[in-house]
Amino acid sequence: MSDPTKGGAYGTPAGDTDFRKTWDLEEYAARGKEREAKEREESKARYEAKLAGRKYHIPLTGNESLASARRTALDVSSQVGKTQLVPAGAGQGRRGRGAGFYCEACDLTYKDNKQFVEHMNSPQHLAATGQKMEVERASAGEVRARVEYWWEQRLELEREQAVSLQERLELRREENEREAAEKRRKRREVEERKRAEREAAEKVKTEYGEDVRIEGEHDEDDMMASLGFTGFGTSKNKT
């Protein structure tokens, strides 16, 4: 069915992937040229700025979003102590994925977290991620709202702590009650046993005296046994 000259695994002509490859290469070449031109332009501007005694700032395209502050620390600790697979040929300079802290957006690898953070804060990285080196100011109202937010958070935390304290106290109270009930039960048990012993002793005395077996004596024994009291020197053991 398939034509061996075409080489497609499922009869699909491989030409379609060939086409993609060509297209990719063309695009890469075009992008490369574009980047080179941009870099040349940039280094020229950089040089001119240096001559003028000023720092060069990358011009904005107008499509960038404003930078925003991190709410949490950069998650670099997650990479500490992990073995990373490093592609062969990596480790030459920063370009590409290598051992260390890798920035996906810029395809750069940094040896340590300090260099990495410096990169994350760099105009180069922000440009690569479509952000400006600028932050929007906050108004007094926004600042006030932020204060309120944190104050609410703090109050909420305090409420939670109070609730958990309340819960702990409640739990402790229930536990204490259970323990007290258990003690009461044991005390009653002991009293019950002593009473039964006393009564049994009385009975033995009377039985010895009359030497008569009383009807229902065994019923009582059965009842005692069912309550877990056996062998308290009843007449059965003595006779």
Partner: peptide, 21 residues
């Protein structure tokens, strides 16, 4: 400093509150 680089980048007036708190 690490604190400055990690936590002070791109802060605005409201972000100051976050960091102080």
């Amino acid at each position: 400093s690490q604190f400055y680089q990690y936590q002070c980048f791109a802060l605005n007036e409201a972000g100051i509150v976050d960091r102080v708190v």
